[in-house]
């Protein structure tokens, strides 16, 4: 293993975050606070408790998931897309590093960022609603697994994208809608039966549900299923990354 290289890439990516602190940390915090003001305080005060949890508290896991997914994808896709765009990728391709090391470093950095961000949002939420975490270890497990899984997804998008539009397309057209429709802001039990069934095809449901279970011990689907689905996504994305690297897809002409 070329540990020096992985460390160099990881630190480089983390330094990029530090330079863009405003964009990468402060803006999600502000938008989360806005969600709390709008959904938690203004609208939430008119909504009954869901499964015995106040609405403001109920949406905390969903909000963290929302940021976790979008930020993981955004960070990882940008991280690998940018060197392709500027041409500095020549150095990465000519270095004695394996593709696995490259992917691990980029994905590791993107996941680290979104995990930190998730924890910051959790702390921010604590300012608005009383927090309670029933299963802290599971909570962290879901946090880390989701961050890694969707950073991998972002990495794939970053390699696939050959312009900035495509880079924005997937987060905008897929991640955001799926998250909003994935029970971030409601329990799927509140939906009419047909929609409950349809919703089960939305992968984000399992992520949000499992994560919410780790907070409140209440879930839309069983926690085992949530974990299995998360691992399934991880496996699928790993397979895609392996294929990309085997074929040099969009990396080498």
């Amino acid at each position: 293993m070329n540990w020096h290289a992985m460390r160099a890439i990881y630190l480089f990516e983390m330094a990029r975050t530090r330079r863009t602190l405003l964009q990468s940390v402060i803006s999600p915090v502000i938008s989360t606070s806005l969600y709390f003001v709008v959904f938690g305080a203004a609208i939430g005060s008119r909504i009954d408790e869901i499964e015995g949890i106040s609405y403001g508290a109920f949406i905390v896991p969903g909000l963290i998931m929302l940021s976790l997914l979008t930020q993981s994808v955004a960070n990882a896709s940008f991280g690998i897309y940018f060197p392709k765009f500027t041409g500095t990728i020549y150095e990465l391709l000519s270095a004695p590093v394996s593709y696995i090391e490259i992917a691990a470093a980029y994905v590791g950095a993107a996941a680290s960022k979104s995990i930190i961000l998730g924890l910051i949002i959790l702390a921010t939420a604590g300012l608005f609603v009383p927090l309670q975490v029933a299963h802290p270890v599971w909570m962290l497990l879901f946090l880390v697994l989701t961050a890694v899984t969707f950073s991998l997804f972002g990495f794939i998008i970053g390699i696939w994208a050959d312009n900035f539009e495509k880079l924005q397309l997937v987060p905008l057209l897929i991640i955001t809608p799926l998250t909003f429709l994935g029970g971030s802001f409601y329990s799927i039990n509140m939906l009419p039966p047909v929609w409950q069934t349809i919703t089960l095809f939305n992968p984000v449901v399992y992520l949000v549900s499992g994560f919410r279970w780790s907070f409140y011990d209440a879930a839309d689907v069983g926690v085992g299923i949530s974990l299995a689905m998360t691992l399934l996504f991880l496996a699928v994305f790993l397979a895609v990354v392996a294929w990309i690297f085997k074929t040099g897809y969009r990396l080498k002409s």
């Binding site: 460390r7 160099a8 890439i9 150095e91």
Partner: peptide, 19 residues
């Protein structure tokens, strides 16, 4: 080149990248 890196950082980065 990366626009916003410092000279020192980018050269050190290259060394690390090459193991």
């Amino acid at each position: 080149t990366d626009a916003f890196e410092s000279v020192w950082a980018t050269v050190s980065f290259s060394r690390g990248l090459f193991g």
